[in-house]
Nucleic acid binder design. Structure first.
Length: 254
DNA sequence: ATGGTAGAAACTCTA
């Protein structure tokens, strides 16, 4: 079983890149973030032609999450139950005995801002919900754009980023709270190259200069972590013309 | 330069 997650930053624009990623990796499950489209304009037919069923929790202009699967998924849940949120950031479904969650954590803008407070509130709601999900679904994979770099080794220049959004102590504590439920960072189950990142700012030639952050994660429950065989970041799509600013994360289970 | 690029959409917001 192979899982993938990718913040595509507009599914319409990135569809050719996505089809290439699906063809090269052939994941059984692909979680997408920032589809930036409504259900009505979701490219259902193109993805079906590539061999994928799609679930979408979309909205106009911003946000939007999807789950692609080889066969239809069931027990679909849109949003965090009990948490009122106008922004489409969470989609969950059962597929082949795995509870799959595609998440797009709020960016947070800057510490001290209203958006930052929303990010921390959102994390609290996520943690409360995932505690319940773990209890009912021991085979749980929560994957997506967390907008938090867990450790300094996930940051190209920790001194420059200290206290900044994606790296600040409150955000790291919020992510640690989620991981404290027992979820493992699949990427860190294995030896990885130094300077492994999943996002590079479009500005200042950040990708070429290797100025990135690792903010996209596959978190696995203990049962799935025990079956995890590999987890890698595919930077190739970031090299293409008109790339997403994020790279896909690929995770292989036994 | 309180910067810079990209996407969606509308002439601004979000990231």
């Amino acid at each position: 079983m192979k899982l993938a997650t990718w913040n595509v930053n507009s599914l319409r624009v990135r569809l050719p890149h996505l089809l290439d990623v699906l063809a090269r990796h052939a994941p059984d499950v692909a979680c997408l973030q920032e589809t930036k489209c409504e259900d009505a304009t979701f490219p259902t037919a193109e993805l079906a032609a590539a061999g994928y069923h799609a679930l979408h929790h979309g909205q106009r202009t911003y946000n939007g999450v999807a789950i692609l699967t080889r066969e239809p998924a069931v027990e679909v849940c849109r949003g965090i139950p009990g948490f009122i949120d106008e922004q489409s950031r969470v989609l969950a479904a059962d597929y082949r005995g795995i509870r799959v969650v595609s998440i797009y954590v709020p960016n947070g803008q800057a510490p001290g801002s209203d958006k930052f407070a929303y990010k921390l509130r959102w994390f609290q709601a996520l943690q409360g919900w995932l505690r319940q999900e773990l209890a009912s679904s021991p085979r749980l994979a929560v994957m997506g754009d967390y907008n938090v770099a867990p450790e300094d080794r996930d940051v190209h220049d920790p001194a420059m980023w200290e206290g900044k959004v994606h790296v600040s102590a409150p955000e790291r504590a919020a992510l640690a709270g989620v991981m404290g439920l027992g979820l493992r960072d699949a990427f860190r189950l294995f030896d990885q190259p130094e300077g492994s990142y999943s996002w590079w700012d479009y500005r200042l030639n950040a990708f070429r200069r290797k100025m990135g952050l690792r903010i996209d994660h596959v978190l696995l429950s203990p049962a799935l972590a025990a079956e995890c065989r590999a987890c890698t970041i595919d930077v190739e799509p970031r090299r293409l013309e008109r790339p997403s600013d994020h790279a896909p994360v690929i995770c292989e289970l036994a």
